[in-house]
Every structure is written in structure tokens, then in C-alpha cells.
Amino acid sequence: MSTTAFTTAIAQARDLLRWRSPLRTELWAARLAADLEPDQVEPFLGELIEDGGAEGRLTLAALAAVNPASEAGAVSEAGAYVLAADGVVETLPGWVRRMGRVTCEGGWYGKADPYGEQVLAALSFRYENGKEPHLLVVGIDQASGGLAVDAVVEEVKFLDDLGLRAEEPGAVAGRVLDAFELGDRIMGAVVADTLAAVRPVAISRARAVPDLVRPAPDDTVSRFDELPDQPGAREAFEKLAEFVGDRPLWWSPARVTQFLTSWLPREAILSEAGIAAMPDVVRAWSRFSGAHPAVLAQVEADAPRLPALMADESLASLGKRIARNRL
């Protein structure tokens, strides 16, 4: 890191010592860490240690607070931050000790858009002294497999405009961690430019939630209670549940078409009753998923084609043909 950038960080830390805000300091440290290239971390930490002043020590403590070492204790950038900050917190004002020491007060989860192509996971926190309540909101992209694509830390009142359903914080935090871990495994994932600067705080907050559920299930399918009373409906719904998998909030016109005209003919073995019941099952699921006119219209456009598509042997996958031969 250049001397100019180091000087800037020290000047900003001086202001933070006057503001005495754990939250502001953590968010600043997360942005600072996001701007560091991997090969800049050790030299920058060395400059801070050599500086020795209160500003440098605050920077070390803040970087460690938002980049806690992994549970496995593996050598990593996070481990480097923690090692560099060893013993410095005790030399700083008492408010610094509150960084990262938060209590989770609630969790919420739901669609970010009408079709659920992205969902939002929200968690509210305040520090152990009861001050600086704040809300973490993570955007999770369903179309890309469920990876985290954006995150913000806002005032708790920000929740009022999101329309999310309250859920157990441990499950919501588990989804947040699952989403970030998935993103780490995908090369070249497209995410918001702002994500990197919030990511350390988001992960440290999610890890602070007690009773984490990993992997965190979604109970949307189990809450569905509008199954049509007709032969084959249960069989049809089981295939629909298999298709939506662990991303059941995502239900768009394109998803309808994929299910009815591609996935079912390719993968599903259904009785005649199951095929006949499928349109009504999909209509019921679409109403349960928000009854969006475009989705319902797509069901009406695609459903009449289903019997012919299911009868077309050329559309069946190899796995489906093998399974059918075993029946």
C-alpha cells in the first residue's frame, strides 16, 4: 500500500477515535480491507505495527474485528489481521472493545422482486451496551444458484419498506453464510461493486448469530396448503417441489416455461393422472407464489402443450429413459 494511502488511513482513524462509534469504525475497516490486494496486506499491517500510535492500533483492532480468523485456524488474510492486532485492543479506549460484540434481535427473509429471482436475508443487531442498532441486508441471487450478490448495513427502519417475513435468525444467518460460501466457490461470479466493502461485516455478523442452521432450509414448500383435490395432484406437486428445490421463492414466467416445457418432459416420469393434474397444481403454486398476472398467463400458454411434450420420447434424458426401462 502506498505511503499516501497509509497516511489517509491514519487520518481517518484519528477522526474515528473522536467519533467513538464501533459501527462506523467496523464499516470503515471493511472498506479498507476491500481495497487491499492480497500482496498488500502484510506490508500494510507492518506499517501499522511500526507506527505504534493510537490511530495505527485502532486500525489494527478494527481490521481484526471485521476479519475474524476461521474456525479451523487456517493461515489466511483474516488470520494475519488477528495476529497483527494481538494485544492492541487493551491499549485503546473502552468503546473499541465493543466492535464485533453484538446481539442479534431478529431475522427476516423474502423476495427482493416480484418473481423471487433475488431474495433478501435481513438480520438486526445492536451492540452489547444496547446502542447503535443496525440492520444487515444481503441480496441472494436465485438464478445464479443462491450466491450473495450485494449487501448493505442500514438503520433498522430500512426494514419497513422490504416486506419480508420474520424467520428464525439462526436460519437466516445460515442462508447468509451459505450464500457467501457459494460465491467463494464460483469463479467470475457477477456481484455488485459495493459487496466487497460490506462482505467482512456481513460474514462476521452472521457468524455472531447463535444457533446457526447450516445448511439452512427454506420452508416455503412445506407451507403450501392449496393442493387441488383431484387424482394425481400429490404426484404432480412432488415433481414441482423437486424442480424448485432449495430456491422455492423463485417463480417467474421463464421458470414456468422451463418447468412445463423442458424439465418435465426431460426428467419426470408421471402417470396420466399426474400429467392431467399438473396444470392445476402449477396454477395453485403460482397463486401461492404471488398470483402475478404474467406468471398465471404463462401457465395458461404452456400447460396445453404438456401432454404432447410428455409423450415425446425424443425429449427424455438418458436418465429418464433408463429409469423408465426399469419400471
Rank of each mutant, 00 (worst) to 15 (best):
W263A: 13
V89P: 07
A202M: 02
F125E: 03
G46L: 05
R101Q: 12
N67S: 13
W95H: 03
D141C: 13
E117R: 00
R247A: 10
A171S: 10
E71I: 14
M187A: 13
G110W: 00
L240K: 08
V138H: 01
S21L: 09
V153T: 13
A30F: 01
R126E: 14
P307I: 06
L159W: 08
D211K: 07
A294N: 07
D219K: 06
D219L: 10
F125C: 03
A173F: 06
W250D: 07
E42N: 06
R20D: 12
P22I: 10
R321Q: 14
A121D: 03
E155D: 15
D161E: 14
R20M: 11
L58Y: 09
S2K: 14
K239L: 11
F259E: 04
Y81E: 00
T4M: 10
E47C: 11
R247I: 08
K111H: 09
F158H: 15
V282Y: 01
F44Y: 12
L92A: 07
A206R: 04
D35C: 08
A179H: 02
E128L: 13
T4E: 13
S21E: 14
L327A: 12
L48Q: 10
P200F: 03
L23M: 10
E155G: 14
W251N: 05
A64F: 12
A65E: 09
T194H: 10
G130W: 10
A216R: 02
L36D: 05
G100T: 06
K239D: 04
A192N: 14
A268F: 04
A308D: 15
A241F: 09
A192M: 06
I269Y: 04
F243L: 05
T257A: 12
D302A: 15
G116Y: 11
A72L: 11
G163Y: 04
P38K: 00
A13S: 12
Q12V: 15
P279C: 01
F44P: 00
L36Q: 06
S289V: 01
